[in-house]
């Protein structure tokens, strides 16, 4: 008798647990407009497309409103890069007070050989470079994938001196 009772209980439990799954999929089916997770990519590229911030798309050198960047041309990123995607070309200039100083001339980025490993950004002591989450990077010619990241006419952002910091 007990085994018969267990048998019936098993059948009823089976139906209950199946109904749970069925109700979940039915909810998805009915509310598909809300729960849908498909990005209709080429159609929504100007409207609702969203890529996570942490996506590694390409290396950028941010400039502020005065067209100044933070790169001191220390070449630590170039050394850290495992596949030579970064080329730092620096030049000597003479400052107003007659000192000779090495500044950045060209920050050349070979996107075609970059593996987006993030090691250059980890290596940078000045936090001058960043990873951007852009993803539409393809072009028709490989030579077009060599970018110069510093804008023309940009210069190093002067660090506030101790005096200025105090005031």
């Amino acid at each position: 008798m007990k085994s018969l009772f267990n048998y019936i209980k098993e059948v009823v439990y089976a139906f209950v647990s199946l109904a749970k799954g069925l109700l979940l999929t039915l909810r998805y089916f009915v509310t598909i407009r809300k729960v849908n997770i498909t990005e209709e990519y080429p159609n929504n590229r100007t409207t609702t497309i969203s890529v996570k911030e942490r996506f590694y798309g390409e290396v950028v050198l941010p400039h502020d409103e005065n067209n100044e960047h933070k790169c001191t041309a220390c070449t630590l990123c170039q050394i850290a890069c495992p596949n030579n995607s970064i080329q730092i070309i620096s030049k000597q200039i003479e400052t107003e007070d007659g000192k000779k100083k090495r500044v950045l001339d060209k920050w050349v980025y070979h996107l075609d050989s970059c593996t987006f490993c993030y090691q250059c950004i980890d290596a940078c002591p000045q936090d001058a470079i960043e990873m951007k989450n852009s993803f539409e990077l393809s072009v028709y010619d490989r030579t077009k994938l060599i970018y110069q990241l510093n804008r023309p006419g940009s210069k190093l952002k002067e660090k506030p001196t101790v005096k200025e910091q105090q005031s």
Binding site: Y28, N36, T38
Partner: peptide, 9 residues
């Protein structure tokens, strides 16, 4: 139906 139940179009 397959699409809607798997959260796609």
């Amino acid at each position: 139906v397959a699409g809607f139940m798997q959260l796609r179009w």
